[in-house]
Amino acid sequence: MPLDVVDLRAFYASPLGHVARRFIGRAMLRFWPDCSRQRVLGLGFSTPYLSVLGLGAERVLAFMPAAQGVVNWPSEGMSASALVEPTLLPLPTASVDRVVLVHALEETESPDDLLEEVGRVLSPGGRMIVVVPNRRGLWARMDGTPFGHGRPFSRSQLQALMRAAEFSPENWAEALYVPPLKRHLLMRSAPAWERAGAGLSLPFAGVHVIDATKQFYRRVPLRATRRSFAFRPILLPRPTPTQRAANPPGDGAAG
């Protein structure tokens, strides 16, 4: 069952949601410390992170899947959010510079088509941040948070998926080592969990955070070459002595 925008908004308003936003957002800012003069698109439910990444951006859009629902964002000023079909984005080709996918890839029925559409709207040299649940993590095994819904991914699955969509992962991080339990003690000790998990490279992080670049291949068309063959006889028949006597050189027909 697809996530509902009301549940997503309630999660990020909770203490556990604040923990998720803090550590995922920190990983994002390490990859993209400055989005000035960039056109940024968020797809899924990315508004908790667009509020940080979009500072100084030329333009920020928040597209939310039709099956999820949409909320007005930002709370002040003109709305920049819209309800869309994720695999048919209402944007021209090469119209944005950065794309942020949160609560999107694991929820779609066709991850290949989604990444292909993201690649279409990205400009040359465009970059994408993807946040998806880690198949080996605790957050994917417990449905009390949005990261426990949809399809989780392993690192190898994500690499194959991006390679097929012509994206090259440039930076890779994991976040949310703290168990997804709504206990005050765990919330207070979340920074220690993150430091220990990242320092020891533990495999049970809650989410993958990937910074990928759109690849471009210069396709050289194959030219069909035509070859002309002149067939020349290798062995020429030589006349016999009788034939030479009967037809001497310069012998013409009588007039």
Rank of each mutant, 00 (worst) to 15 (best):
F167A: 00
P191G: 07
S189W: 09
S189T: 07
E166A: 14
L186V: 15
M162N: 03
P180S: 12
E174S: 12
E166I: 08
S156D: 14
E166H: 10
R163Q: 08
S168R: 13
A190T: 02
E174K: 05
L186A: 06
A190M: 07
R163M: 07
M187C: 07
F167P: 05
E170P: 00
L181C: 10
F167D: 00
P179C: 11
M187T: 15
P180G: 12
R188S: 15
R183K: 10
K182M: 07
L158S: 02
E170L: 07
A190G: 07
A160C: 13
A192F: 12
P191Q: 06
P180M: 09
H184C: 14
S189V: 03
L158T: 01
S168M: 11
P152N: 12
R155P: 05
P152D: 15
S154A: 12
M162P: 12
L186C: 10
E174R: 15
E174G: 08
F153L: 01
L158P: 14
V178L: 03
E166V: 13
P152M: 04
S154E: 07
A165I: 05
E174T: 05
G150E: 15
F167V: 02
E170C: 02
Q159I: 01
H149G: 13
F153E: 03
E170K: 00
E174P: 06
Y177L: 14
K182P: 14
K182W: 09
L161E: 11
Y177T: 01
G150D: 13
G150I: 09
S156I: 06
P191E: 07
Q159R: 13
E170Y: 00
P191M: 09
P180I: 05
P180T: 08
H149R: 14
S156M: 09
L176C: 12
S168C: 09
R188H: 10
L186M: 06
Q157D: 11
F153R: 02
S189Y: 02
P169I: 00
R163H: 10
W193T: 01
R163Y: 08
L161P: 09
M187A: 14
Q159C: 09
A173R: 02
E174Y: 00
L161H: 07
R155I: 00
A190V: 00
G150T: 13
Q157M: 05
M187N: 13
Q159W: 03
L176K: 05
E166Q: 08
M187W: 11
